[in-house]
Simulated scan of single mutants.
Amino acid sequence: MSTKDQILKKIEILITNHFETPKKAFEFFDSNGDQKLSKAEIKNLLQEAEISGFIRGIIASKLIEGYDKDGDQLISWSEFKAAIDEISQ
């Protein structure tokens, strides 16, 4: 299992074990309520998923780079859902 797969698995475990739905997880980590996850909010999610602090910033940037389809440097609910759907496959 690659490091990427391990990280995605930790995120999946966090969401399935601690939240009723992925939408509830998204809303929980959207601390300012703007319906988008910023890099800082994604880093909080990664911290809760027990991803090492050393690499959290890099991973948050990579997640934004990989899933931010509209180029605003934020992850919307639809982008988050697409990521979760990919992780769950």
Rank of each mutant, 00 (worst) to 15 (best):
H18R: 14
I75G: 10
K9E: 15
I51W: 08
S76A: 11
I42Q: 02
N17D: 15
L46R: 06
K10Y: 06
N44Q: 10
Q73F: 08
I75N: 07
Q73Y: 06
S76Y: 09
E50G: 00
K9D: 10
M1T: 13
E65A: 11
H18N: 15
L63T: 01
F26C: 02
G33Q: 04
K4N: 13
W77Y: 15
I58T: 13
K10H: 12
L46D: 01
A83P: 05
F28K: 03
T16L: 05
S61A: 10
Q73A: 11
L63P: 00
K23T: 06
D68I: 05
S31Y: 07
G71Y: 06
L46I: 01
K4V: 15
S61G: 15
E48L: 09
I87M: 13
E12G: 10
A25I: 03
N32I: 01
A60M: 04
I7Y: 12
D68K: 08
N32P: 06
I11Y: 08
N32F: 07
D68W: 06
K43A: 11
F26D: 05
D30W: 06
D68V: 05
T3K: 14
S76W: 04
F80S: 02
F29R: 06
S78L: 07
N17P: 07
I13D: 13
S88A: 10
L8R: 11
G53A: 08
L74W: 08
I42A: 10
S88R: 15
K62W: 03
L46V: 04
I59F: 10
I75S: 02
K39Y: 00
E48G: 09
S78I: 00
S61Q: 09
S78W: 04
I7K: 01
A82N: 13
I51S: 01
A40C: 02
I7W: 04
K23H: 08
S38M: 00
D5N: 15
N44E: 14
A83L: 14
F26W: 05
S76G: 11
L14W: 08
F19K: 03
Y67T: 01
D34P: 04
F54M: 10
E50C: 00
W77S: 03
L14H: 08
